[in-house]
């Protein structure tokens, strides 16, 4: 799970936003927010946060398919802010949230 509960920012972006490597950050879009660990990306990537595809970001992507069946999973405007000691959800916590409305199950 540690490979997908991270996000990557380049050195300039980390400096600009006051984020230390390994620190937790909140990524917010108009669809939701998530907390992940920030890692340094060694390459050009100005003003971009790169996040691996995982259940941890499914609430911040744009589900709208624009009538062609495909949601927008990349190129989504987002805000990134440091959150000292932020809680990265465990998979079970995430799934419990998804299951929340069902009322007849859990684990």
């Amino acid at each position: 799970m540690e490979n997908v509960t991270v996000c990557y920012l380049d050195e300039d972006s980390m400096k600009k936003l006051g984020i230390e490597e390994g620190e937790t950050v909140r990524i917010s879009t108009k669809h939701g927010s998530t907390i992940l660990k920030a890692l340094k990306f060694h390459g050009e990537q100005p003003n971009i946060v790169f996040v691996p595809y995982s259940p941890w970001i499914n609430n911040i992507v744009n589900p709208d398919t624009n009538g062609v069946g495909m949601p927008s999973l990349k190129g989504i405007p987002a805000e990134v802010e440091p959150v000292k000691g932020g809680h990265v959800l465990k998979l079970e916590e995430l799934l419990r949230g998804i299951l929340g409305s069902r009322n007849d199950g859990g684990f």
Binding site: H31, P55, N58, N59, V61, P63, P71, R102
Partner: peptide
């Protein structure tokens, strides 16, 4: 799909 679909789609799937 619970791991890969947008959250709203996954929420209906598990209902």
């Amino acid at each position: 799909p619970v791991a890969t679909l947008p959250r709203k789609a996954a929420e209906h799937l598990v209902k």
